[in-house]
C-alpha cells in the first residue's frame, strides 16, 4: 500500500502516488455506486479508509472488474498515458447516459517540489496532507447525493479511460465512444494532488 512505498517523511514515490490515486479511485467509485444506488445496499459493507468509512461492494463481479480496471489504470498512470477516467452511469434499458463522473489526471511531477533521487521521481508532499485532501473529496462525493437527481430506473455503470492516442489496447479492452450527456449540468469537486498527480473530480448529470 501507499505507506509501504513511503520511504521518509514528506516524500512520496511515483509508485506510491499512483497507488494513492488508484485507492482514491477505488473508494470513490465504490462510494458512488453505493450512494447513487446502482447496486442494492445489502451488497456493500462498511470499511474504513483514509480515516473515513467507505462502503465497499462485496459483489465478486464488481470487485474483479474494478480490480482489473484499476490495475490497468495504475499501469498507464506510471507510463503517463492516462488522461482521464470516466465513470458512466447509464439507464440499462434505454442506454441513455444519466451521469458521468470524470476523474482528470494531471502530471505535475517535474514542476513543484519534486526531485529525482537515485533515479526515481519523488514528490515532496506530506502523506497526511494528501490523505486529508483525498478524504475531503470523498466526503464531498458522499455529500453530493443530496442534490444529484434521483436515479429511479435500473442503471448500469461503465468505466471509460481516456488515454493518449498511441496507447496500446490491451486484451479484453476495446476502443469506444465517449459518453455524452445532453443538457448536462456540471459540478466540480475539490482537487487533490500528490505532488506527482493532480486529480480533478467532476460530475456531469442530466438535468431533468
Amino acid at each position: 500500500m501507499a505507506s509501504t512505498k513511503h520511504q521518509t517523511d514528506g516524500t512520496i514515490t511515483l509508485k506510491g502516488s499512483s497507488d494513492l490515486v488508484k485507492e482514491y479511485l477505488d473508494y470513490g467509485i465504490n462510494s458512488i455506486l453505493y450512494q447513487r444506488g446502482i447496486y442494492p445496499e445489502e451488497t456493500f459493507v462498511q470499511a474504513e479508509h483514509f480515516g473515513i468509512t467507505v462502503f465497499m461492494s462485496t459483489d465478486e463481479k464488481i470487485k474483479s472488474f474494478l480490480k482489473s480496471v484499476l490495475d490497468q489504470i495504475q499501469g498507464w498512470l506510471l507510463q503517463k498515458k492516462l488522461q482521464k477516467i470516466s465513470l458512466v452511469i447509464s439507464n440499462s434499458v434505454t442506454k441513455e447516459v444519466l451521469e458521468r463522473w470524470d476523474f482528470k489526471v494531471q502530471y505535475e511531477g517535474d514542476a513543484n517540489g519534486s526531485a529525482v533521487e537515485n533515479g526515481r521521481i519523488i514528490g515532496k508532499k506530506d502523506l497526511t496532507v494528501i490523505q486529508k485532501e483525498i478524504r475531503s473529496v470523498l466526503r464531498q462525493i458522499s455529500g453530493s447525493v443530496s442534490f444529484l437527481p434521483l436515479l429511479d430506473c435500473l442503471c448500469a455503470f461503465d468505466v471509460l479511460v481516456y488515454t493518449i492516442p498511441d496507447c496500446e489496447v490491451p486484451q479484453e479492452w476495446d476502443e469506444t465512444q465517449p459518453a455524452f450527456i445532453a443538457n448536462a449540468q456540471e459540478l466540480s469537486f475539490r482537487t487533490f494532488s500528490t505532488s506527482l498527480h493532480r486529480m480533478e473530480t467532476h460530475v456531469s448529470y442530466k438535468v431533468e
Binding site: 463481479k61 464488481i62 472488474f65 482489473s68 480496471v69 488522461q83 482521464k84 470516466s86 458512466v88 447509464s90 440499462s92 442506454k95 458521468r100 470524470d102 435500473l154 448500469a156 455503470f157 461503465d158 468505466v159 471509460l160 479511460v161 481516456y162 488515454t163 493518449i164 492516442p165 496507447c167 489496447v169 479484453e172 479492452w173 476495446d174 476502443e175 469506444t176 465512444q177 465517449p178 459518453a179 455524452f180 450527456i181 448536462a184 456540471e186 456531469s204
Partner: peptide, 22 residues
C-alpha cells in the same frame, strides 16, 4: 461536456463492463 479530442486522446473500456453485461 464530455467530448474529447480524437487527435489527443483515445477512449478505452473493458469489453465485459457491467453495463455491457447487463
Amino acid at each position: 461536456k464530455g467530448d474529447f479530442n480524437p487527435m489527443k486522446s483515445k477512449v478505452l473500456h473493458i469489453r465485459m463492463n457491467p453495463a455491457a453485461t447487463v
